[in-house]
Design a protein around this nucleic acid. Sequence first.
DNA 1: GTCACTTTCTGACTGATAGTCATTTTATTT
DNA 2: AAATAAAATGACTATCAGTCAGAAAGTGAC
Lengths: 228, 228
Amino acid sequence: MSKEERKAREKERRRNQIIDAAERVIFSKSLEQSTMVEIAEEAGLSKGTLYLYFKNKTELYIAITQRGSDLLNSKFAKVFSGTHDYTGLELIKIMGETYLNFVRENPNYFTAFMYYESISDVEALENSKYANQCDQNRREALNFMIRALQIGMQDGSVDDRYEPKELAIIIFASTRGLTAMTHASGRGHYFELLDEMEVSITKLFENFLNLLVEGMASKKELKDSGNG
Amino acid sequence: MSKEERKAREKERRRNQIIDAAERVIFSKSLEQSTMVEIAEEAGLSKGTLYLYFKNKTELYIAITQRGSDLLNSKFAKVFSGTHDYTGLELIKIMGETYLNFVRENPNYFTAFMYYESISDVEALENSKYANQCDQNRREALNFMIRALQIGMQDGSVDDRYEPKELAIIIFASTRGLTAMTHASGRGHYFELLDEMEVSITKLFENFLNLLVEGMASKKELKDSGNG
DNA sequence: GTCACTTTCTGACTGATAGTCATTTTATTT
DNA sequence: AAATAAAATGACTATCAGTCAGAAAGTGAC
């Protein structure tokens, strides 16, 4: 036990040492501009060793992605932990704010998320435990949101004509869009549109959440939709 | 005139011939898996020639991106052209549907859009006429949306307590989020969540638009927001 | 038609880097 | 300390973006 266990723990430490180094290097530039040799040197190892712990550069980056994903989910979990007297609708807003704050505080992890989502080589994803964990986290985050919506439908704060699953996905995806823009803008990317238009991101996000909330808040008067 | 002009036209034709070839090659695989030699061969030229027409591989891909961007904008323009009796709110919905349809019909262009937005080397963007055109198109699209909202505020279909610019950006970004998910899902990416949950994208999008519309539709009874 | 000159095109070459693997170093057991 | 196993190394290979000296094609003058 002590034997095998210690080995495994040692191995895990090395792995983390490499991920630490990779974060330092990649976050200071970008994935493309970082080489495996640089990362190895930063970790005080040689290039070959990196490949004993990670299949390739992409898997190493996905390991970083997983860290970010874990961190984000721990924040979501905190929202739901312990006792609180938030309505479902409030929970949704808080989750949105949590997400925005995460992206602002950890832009590099968000960059990693975006890269992760752009990977089209399904093969690479299926065989990676890091990727699996990321997917697992995403599923969990969605479940948090579904829970919030169900709470909201019970306490009357959320319109119960919606399907919680669907609504959760919609909120999830649209919030993602907003934060992606926020992120791009923070990187001085094309979205100086915001500057041009003198729109503050904080205010924008506030309005976005209000819009969502307004849209899904329960209404007194029911009306029939025109869809067949 | 005839002289210089013919030259320029010839050059333009070559350029398009290269972009055509690049689309065929890159769309059949992916940017990373496509080499400049392959593209050159597909175009019936040699690698060196490609570099007479495009600074580098990225610029060539941005040229493809621009095509997609132009195509999308032409579809938006069509929505606004001619006479119609849509309300502002209806125009917003139609724009959203137009966008979704574009992504479904041209997933490869959308992939290009996502890549484009991930470029963090601002230098590369500023010196490229293709990138400038993309940015220009984005601005124009946003202006279409602002116009629709202003129309809506006048005809009473859109809540005029919102700032059109802000609202336009919000709708823009959140719709982008939805379509990105649609796109990822279509690529068999992690978002088999949708399958798992038995949610159809069409229905999802419908609900998303309804949610937005509900949120921004003008309300009879005004209420004060709690924000300082 | 051929010479001089310009424009366009070519593909061998260079440099960079991801990933491999035979060899060396270090740790563990007997 | 010898034998064996595990971990680490870095020289090597393959691939590919981007370059550039020279070839080929085009243009115009006579």
